[in-house]
Design a protein around this nucleic acid. Structure first.
Lengths: 221, 221
DNA sequence: ACCTGAACACCGTTCAAGT
DNA sequence: ACCTGAACACCGTTCAAGT
C-alpha cells in the first residue's frame, strides 16, 4: 500500500533487502500455482528465493505461517462485487460460487483457513465485513448474519474438495451388491466429474439460500 | 464376517499371526483416539503393535491406506437408524448431525474421505445405500438423490472443522477498523465456541433441508 | 509368508557463527 | 538485522537378509 523508500537501514552498508514477507508470499504462490502444494517446502521456497532455508525464519515463524500468508492472498481473489448491485440472496450465491472456485485450487488451505483467527488475515476480514454489511442492510440480525456466513462457508469448503474427486469415486468396484440402489443412481450422474460436482453444489447452494430466504424474508422465491 | 479357522498356514510351524489388517486398524484407532492424528505415524503404529515399522508394509501399502481403514471404521459409527422410522427430511437432518459429530473428531480424515473411491470403503457404501433408498422411497430421482447426499456431506465436512475453531476466531485483534460491522455482529454470538458452531450448523442444515423439501415435495414445512 | 534392521531421501526447525 | 551452514529430531518407504 504505502510506498516505502529504499531505506538504508542501520548505519553501515545498505545490505540489499534480499528477503521480505511480500517476496516470500509471491514465491510461495508461484510454487503452489505451478507445482502444487505437495512441492511447497521450506527448502523449495528458499531455493526459489535464492536463500538458505533457515533464512526464511527471519520473516515467518513456521511453515503454517507461510500458508496463512498465501491464504490471505487467495481470499483477496474472491469476488465480493455482487454485493454492490444485487439483492442479498443472489449476491450470496455469486459470492459462494467464486469462493468455491478459488478454494478448489487451494484445498490444502481449508484445514488452515477453517480454524484461523481473522486477526491474522486482513483480506479475509475485509471480505466478511462486506458480506456482513449486505446482510445487515437486508435487515438480518447480527448473530444470524455471522451464522449465515459460517454456514455458507462450510458448504463451500466441503464442496471445494468434490471438485477434485476422481471420476470413479462412486464406482463400487467389486462391492456393487452392497449398494445396488446407490450404484444405479450414481450411474445417472454426468460423466464429467467436474460437471457432476458442479451440479451437486448448485443444488445444495440453491436449496440453502432458498431456505435462508424463506426464513429471513418470508419470501418463497 | 465369515469365521476363519485358526489356520496353520503353509506346512511348517503355525508361525503365530502377529499382524493383520484388523489388528492394525484397531491399533491405529487407539492411537488416534488417545493421542490424536499428529501422533499417528508408521513408527508409533508399529510400536503399539510390537513390530518394526517395515513390517506394516506387508499389510498396507502406505500411510494413506491406514487412514482409509480408519475412515471406514469411523463411518460405521454414523447413525443411519433415523431412516428406518422418520420421513426423509427429518432423517436426513439426524443423519447429518451424527455425521458431523463423528468427523469433528476426525477432521484429518476429511481430505481423504472427500476424494476416496467408495470401492475402498464398504461401510461408507452401505451408508450411502441406506440414504439413497430412503430418498428413492420418497420419490426423489436418482441423480438428484446422489446430489443431495453429496451436498449434505459437503456441509457436514465444512462444519466439522468449525467445531474445533478457537474462541477468538472472529476477534479482529488490531484490525477492528477493517471490519466494524462484522466485529459487532461476531460479539453477539454465544461465548462458548462449540455452541456458536452448533448454532451456525443448525441454521445452515435447517435451511438446506428446508430448501430441499420445498424443491422435492412442494411442501413449505 | 511375514518379519527385522539398515538405509534412503526427505521433512521442518534451531542455532552458533558470521557480516 | 539478516544471512549461512551444520546439525537435530523426525518423517514415510524400500529392500536385502533372515525364518
Amino acid at each position: 500500500m504505502s510506498q516505502q523508500p529504499p531505506s538504508t537501514r542501520g548505519r553501515g552498508r545498505p545490505s540489499s533487502p534480499v528477503l521480505s514477507r511480500e517476496r516470500l508470499t509471491q514465491a510461495a504462490i508461484r510454487i503452489v500455482t505451478e507445482q502444487g502444494y505437495r512441492r511447497l517446502t521450506m527448502a523449495s521456497l528458499a531455493r526459489e528465493l535464492g536463500v538458505s532455508a533457515s533464512a526464511l525464519y527471519n520473516h515467518v515463524s513456521s511453515k503454517r505461517d507461510v500458508l496463512v500468508l498465501i491464504q490471505d492472498r487467495v481470499n483477496e481473489q474472491i469476488d465480493c462485487s455482487p454485493f454492490n448491485t444485487r439483492p442479498w440472496d443472489e449476491a450470496l450465491r455469486e459470492w459462494a460460487r467464486s469462493y468455491r472456485r478459488c478454494f478448489a485450487q487451494h484445498t490444502a488451505l481449508i484445514p488452515v483457513m477453517a480454524v484461523l483467527p481473522v486477526a491474522d488475515s486482513p483480506q479475509t476480514l475485509r471480505m466478511y465485513e462486506r458480506v456482513a454489511r449486505a446482510l445487515c442492510d437486508a435487515g438480518i440480525d447480527g448473530a444470524d448474519a455471522v451464522d449465515i456466513i459460517v454456514g455458507v462457508e462450510a458448504l463451500v469448503f466441503g464442496a471445494a474438495y468434490d471438485v477434485l474427486a476422481p471420476t470413479d469415486i462412486f464406482d463400487p468396484g467389486g462391492l456393487e451388491e452392497l449398494a445396488p440402489t446407490f450404484t444405479r443412481f450414481a450411474a445417472q450422474r454426468p460423466r464429467d466429474p467436474r460437471a457432476a460436482a458442479d451440479r451437486a453444489f448448485e443444488l445444495a447452494l440453491d436449496s440453502l439460500i432458498g431456505g435462508l430466504r424463506q426464513r429471513f424474508t418470508g419470501a418463497v422465491g
